[in-house]
Amino acid sequence: MSAETELLGMPESLKDIKHIILVLSGKGGVGKSSVTTQTALTLCLKGYKVGVLDIDLTGPSLPRMFGLENKQVYQASKGWIPVSVPTTSGGELKLMSLGFLLDDRGNSVVWRGPKKSAMIKQFIKDVDWGDLDYLIIDTPPGTSDEHISIAEELRWAAPDGAIIVTTPQGVATADVRKEINFCKKVNFNILGVIENMSGFICPHCAECTDIFSRGGGFKLASEYNVPYLGNIPIDPTFVELIEKQTGFKESLVDLYKDSGLYVIFSKILDNVLNGEVKSGTDQ
């Protein structure tokens, strides 16, 4: 594609997508993929058409999160066809990840920056998403190649903004601060901060222990004057649900409906959706 056609604006593949939300965090292992998964499941349960794009190229977790390991992506005339998650909720859920393109799940993708950038470009331009209400983009930790590339690729697509995920402890929020500064530099609107792994309720005695401390997310949000979306406790049943989903008859979407976290997420996303009226692309 020449420089002139690029100037025409939004890539063809994103034309029928109403909203684009990124899930970011400077820190690894804070639950970006888990928040992405739950955001997608919740929106799907609310009846929306949702697409999920995984740009964590060297550590793609989403195929496993959605129970879609070993699934294949097919090439059609309009581009790659993302993998569909079965659902009976009225919504739609589709996923694209580099995980689908690997021969073996243990294979490593040892790529330097330019190759990662090229892949992300392809993910943005060559996936046939069709009609979507929401595209959620899950990212790797850091502020490097993947992040610069996605910011460049989305510059004409007017993404709604980013959900920032952190865990409560200072060591994590220190890295997340850097991510917020990144968002400011590339003009990503910040939809809000979610504090994940905030407290663990002992199943034996119901005592809540703040394993990774508490309140760091709220402090961070107020310091940077961005919305605080709420905290999510550590829930081992969610981990178990993810790990054992293939053993159930119902789809993950239906299983999630009964999870205690759905209630929390539903509330968080209602806040985000309401906020969008003010800051979204509908304007």
Partner: peptide, 18 residues
Amino acid sequence: GFVCPNCKGESKIFKATT
């Protein structure tokens, strides 16, 4: 594994299902 400081009961927070 996590040992609750209150009741000393152990929980597997990040369960090793595999």
